[in-house]
């Protein structure tokens, strides 16, 4: 069974919000899952694991302390959503001489879509590397150097982002459906359920505003 990309985005957004992220970051976490799913990458699994890890942790503790020099978090582990949104926001830094380096970044796969959007902004393909993994993107297409298991690691000790001068035009294009790992979907749904207000008799009666008979 496949999922529509809209389903993935909608559930991921609610889940990220359910785990306590701001609406703005939740929106981008959802777009990131959608982007990864369109490239057959397990973004939903990575998000489910990340949300479990950062559940209840103040966002500031896992955000870059500063955008100057190598990025580090007060807690010691950077969140890929906090780092990804910052990477998107300061995309121009990628055009400077030195790569952007992130130290101890959780679930680095989730950073790739943000590198893609930064790439669109600076109109230059971007390469992201950690361990023996190198992924390049021009925003839409993606090129993965190998299918190393390191692509799904829980933490990248050092992750680098820099312009991809050798980006291949034959890189793979996005698809239109997503394949989801069922247990990760269940976990996302559990986070998502936290955004729903428990129904009360009053809300059932009044909240949707139907006071009249439905038959006419």
């Amino acid at each position: 069974m496949t999922h529509s990309l809209n389903e993935i985005e909608a559930t991921a957004k609610r889940a990220a919000r359910g785990a306590g992220l701001s609406w703005g970051i939740a929106e981008e976490a959802a777009k990131a899952c959608r982007w990864l799913a369109s490239h057959k990458l397990p973004g939903v699994t990575a998000l489910a694991e990340l949300l479990t890890l950062i559940d209840g942790v103040p966002h500031r503790n896992v955000s870059p302390i500063s955008l100057d020099g190598a990025w580090t978090a007060p807690s010691g582990r950077l969140c890929p959503l906090a780092s990804g949104t910052a990477l998107n926001d300061c995309a121009e830094l990628l055009l400077k001489e030195k790569p952007i380096e992130m130290i101890n970044l959780s679930y680095p796969l989730l950073l790739i879509p943000f590198a893609a959007w930064a790439s669109v902004h600076i109109n230059t393909p971007v390469k992201v590397s950690w361990s023996n993994v190198t992924i390049s993107t021009n925003g839409k297409c993606i090129e993965i150097n190998n299918s190393s298991p390191h692509i799904n690691v829980e933490i990248a000790t050092v992750l680098s982002c820099y312009p991809a001068k050798d980006f291949q035009t034959g890189a793979s294009k996005p698809g239109m459906r997503g394949i989801i790992e069922p247990s990760a979907w269940v976990r996302l749904t559990e986070f998502s359920d936290r955004t729903y207000a428990p129904a009360t008799d009053a809300s059932r009666r009044l909240g949707a505003g139907s006071g009249n008979s439905d038959n006419d």
Partner: peptide
């Protein structure tokens, strides 16, 4: 820049968008 602001105030991100 907005980038610097949003690093400190992620709760305003959806409104900036």
């Amino acid at each position: 820049t907005i980038a610097k602001f949003l690093l400190r105030y992620p709760e305003h991100r959806h409104t900036v968008r």
